[in-house]
Simulated scan of single mutants.
Amino acid sequence: MAGKHCTYPWTCWPPASQQRLFKFLLLGTAGLIFAVFVGATLFTGALTQEIAAEKEQYSLVVPLVREITTLRAAQGDLVRLTPEEAVRRILDDRSLNDYAASLRPTRVAEDQEGVEVTLNGLTLIMLTDFLQDARERASLQAPEFVLTRNPEEPRLADVHLVLAR
């Protein structure tokens, strides 16, 4: 007598055992889906709480950072000079006079004086150092800023900006 050939292991089982196996598989799959759903819900809830806590901490830090930058700007050695004089001093200190194409006083608002500056052929480091000095030493901000690539040397930058307090 030849043994009965079973395609799948459970096909040789009695029908009650097969039914019990498929019920357990169905319940196991449903339980697994439920566990994944609950886990995902708890994970996103924890992330939402963490994001809210980070936002709250950020909102506490922002005013402090603004106050620090304001105090740092007020301590600059060029704060008492006009914007034009301050920019001329920064250009002298940084040896950027050769790069200055134009520098002229302007009015940003009715009661706010500023200076319009065009610098050509700067490296990015030279530009950032100039802007950092303008902010920290002279308390100047750039309400207008246009940065373009230098046509003669594409690795260098041309910048046209207005600086004001």
Results as ranks from 00 to 15, higher is better:
2 A>I: 02
5 H>I: 05
5 H>T: 04
5 H>V: 15
6 C>W: 09
6 C>Y: 12
6 C>R: 14
7 T>W: 08
7 T>H: 14
8 Y>D: 04
9 P>E: 03
10 W>C: 03
12 C>F: 06
12 C>L: 09
13 W>R: 11
15 P>D: 14
16 A>S: 00
18 Q>H: 04
21 L>R: 06
23 K>H: 08
24 F>E: 01
24 F>K: 07
26 L>S: 14
27 L>P: 06
27 L>H: 01
28 G>N: 00
30 A>H: 04
30 A>W: 00
32 L>V: 07
37 F>W: 12
39 G>Q: 05
39 G>S: 14
40 A>N: 00
41 T>H: 02
43 F>W: 14
44 T>G: 01
46 A>C: 05
50 E>G: 03
52 A>W: 01
52 A>I: 06
53 A>G: 10
53 A>C: 05
54 E>D: 10
55 K>N: 12
55 K>R: 12
57 Q>R: 13
59 S>E: 15
60 L>P: 10
63 P>G: 02
64 L>D: 00
71 L>G: 09
73 A>G: 07
74 A>G: 12
75 Q>F: 06
76 G>S: 13
76 G>Q: 13
79 V>A: 13
79 V>C: 10
80 R>I: 03
80 R>Y: 13
81 L>K: 05
83 P>N: 14
87 V>R: 02
90 I>R: 02
91 L>F: 02
93 D>P: 03
94 R>T: 15
95 S>V: 01
95 S>C: 04
96 L>F: 01
98 D>A: 04
108 V>K: 06
108 V>D: 03
109 A>S: 15
109 A>I: 11
109 A>K: 13
111 D>A: 15
112 Q>D: 07
119 L>K: 00
123 T>W: 04
124 L>W: 15
124 L>N: 12
125 I>M: 14
130 F>L: 12
130 F>K: 00
132 Q>P: 03
132 Q>L: 00
133 D>K: 13
133 D>R: 07
135 R>P: 10
136 E>F: 05
137 R>K: 15
141 Q>I: 03
141 Q>T: 12
141 Q>N: 13
141 Q>D: 09
143 P>F: 06
145 F>L: 13
149 R>P: 01
151 P>Y: 01
152 E>W: 09
154 P>M: 05
155 R>T: 15
156 L>R: 03
156 L>C: 06
158 D>Y: 14
158 D>L: 07
161 L>C: 06
162 V>D: 00
164 A>P: 00
164 A>S: 01
